[in-house]
Design a protein around this nucleic acid. Structure first.
Length: 468
DNA sequence: TGGGGTTAT
DNA sequence: ATAACCC
């Protein structure tokens, strides 16, 4: 059987996304796929990520019930622990009561997780440059172009013996006469390759969902849970979105919006689908109302925006009580030491610094932070790589001034969190556009292997992950 | 409830 | 600078 040709321009090649000669500089970040109509998006979601990383760091923990602890909370745990009834984000007391043999490791330092997280994102970027991070353990990948390329290579082969990889949501029957079904089946095979590469090269297991947009790919990835993947065919979209038992489960509808809608008597996905648009707009504003209305129908035209390097680096610590300026200074020095280490490895320089605090209050406990930020003086920025002692002293002074802008140190105070954030990160002067170094550095990449394979990851020759 | 992140206003 | 969202 050959491809049906019901759809005009199904190769989607006008001036294709990758091909544009003479594209203006800086255009590449905003551009998405040539054809916005039939996208193929993969969402990946690692299984209990922090616990997996800890089991890799210490294989002894493999077959034991394991929890990762931050302060007095078990933030995540492995599947051995879940079998015994431990859930995410439970207090250490509760978890130990339920399961006294639970092994706990401290996960307050995110460094190992952050490093592994970026390895995953970089691996996925070998498939497509359009990778968007969501937290440390999830990624969206727009593989529309890759799918179109595989489709083009298949011309004449016939696709009757092609088969889906993993689950199909609702056990819906695949119709190989339907071009979108064919695209999604190819997408499922690519998702399987991604999960294979993550396991072979990084030792990580996880789920994947394949669908025509970000919302749906994310929702469907969670339908078969540890270490499995699922593809959503368009005909089952309503069933998937309708299977959510509350609007709060729709990604993009958060705590606040859920509460406001509940006050209007709106709580199910069906309620949002059928409520009058004006009612919604009056409560939430036109922009949010329209977005949420579309989400409730499973529609989401938001692009996969490549995350690239982080926009900000921050370090924070929470505690029961901090009530004197000397304590604050101590904490700030700790946070700053870690941040300076991280920023030097990043290579870029921050031009803005921010201090955030949380003040104790019996009501409204877990919310409300205040912050003050300011530009970093240019003479400090320049000395960032070297002369760290000096930089440290200058920044501590700046942060203490910011602190006094928020807190009148003459009256008693009670802090429960301090956070320092570097933002407005800029590349080194020699890497910026218009400088001589930019052109020299950009144009002669020290190519190691020479040619690039077509979109397929070059498996680090036999560098497979070896368990144990 | 932790220790991060992002975008919109 | 805050508020909302995500994990």
């Amino acid at each position: 059987m050959e491809f049906p040709e019901e759809e005009e321009d199904w190769l989607g090649f006008g001036p294709g996304p990758g091909g544009g000669a003479g594209r203006p500089a800086g255009y590449d970040k905003a551009v998405q796929v040539g054809n916005t109509a039939h996208r193929v998006i993969v969402h990946t979601d690692l299984d209990c990520f922090y616990a997996q990383v800890e089991m890799i760091r210490n294989p002894e923990l493999r077959d034991k019930p394991l929890g990762v602890q931050q302060k007095y909370v078990v933030v995540t745990c492995n599947y051995e622990a879940r079998k015994l009834g431990i859930k995410k984000l439970t207090s250490v007391r509760e978890a130990k009561e339920k399961c006294p043999e639970l092994v706990l490791v401290n996960g307050e330092d995110l460094t190992p997780y952050r490093e592994m997280s970026y390895k995953v994102t970089e691996l996925l970027e070998e498939f497509s440059p359009l990778v968007e991070r969501l937290g440390f353990d999830e990624n969206f990948v727009d593989i529309t172009d890759l799918v179109e390329k595989k489709l083009a290579q298949m011309q004449g082969d016939g696709c009757s013996k092609m088969s889906v990889s993993g689950h199909v949501y609702n056990n819906q029957i695949v119709n190989l006469h339907d071009m979108m079904h064919i695209r999604l089946v190819i997408g499922s095979q690519i998702a399987a390759e991604m999960r294979e590469a993550m396991y072979n090269r990084l030792g990580l297991t996880g789920c994947a969902g394949v669908a025509s947009n970000k919302l749906l790919s994310k929702l469907v990835s969670g339908t078969f849970k540890p270490n499995q993947q699922t593809v959503l065919l368009p005909e089952s979209c309503q069933d998937l979105i309708g299977s959510l038992d509350h609007i709060g489960k729709v990604p993009g509808i958060g705590y606040k919006t859920t509460k406001r809608l509940e006050l209007l008597g709106l709580s199910s996905v069906h309620d949002i689908q059928t409520v009058s648009p004006v009612i919604l707009e009056n409560e939430l504003g036109v922009s949010i109302a329209q977005r949420i209305k579309k989400l409730s129908h499973g529609e989401d035209d938001s692009p996969v925006v490549p995350s690239g390097p982080p926009q900000s680096l921050s370090d924070e610590d929470s505690f029961k009580k901090c009530s004197s300026e000397v304590e604050v200074k101590k904490k700030i020095e700790e946070l700053l030491t870690n941040l300076l280490d991280r920023i030097s490895k990043d290579g870029r320089k921050p031009h803005t610094i921010r201090l955030s605090i949380r003040q104790f209050s019996s009501t409204n406990k877990w919310f409300s932070r205040e912050s003050r930020q300011c530009p970093i003086p240019s003479h400090v920025i320049q000395k960032f790589g070297t002369e760290n002692c000096d930089v440290m002293a200058q920044l501590v002074a700046i942060l203490m001034k910011l602190f006094r802008k928020m807190i009148k140190v003459e009256v008693p105070f009670h802090l429960t969190l301090l956070s320092v954030c570097f933002s407005n990160l800029k590349a080194l002067p020699s890497f910026t556009k218009g400088s001589i170094g930019f052109y020299l550095t950009q144009s002669s990449p020290p190519s190691s292997s020479g040619k690039k394979m077509e979109g397929v990851p070059q498996d680090q020759e036999n560098c497979s992950f070896v368990p144990g």
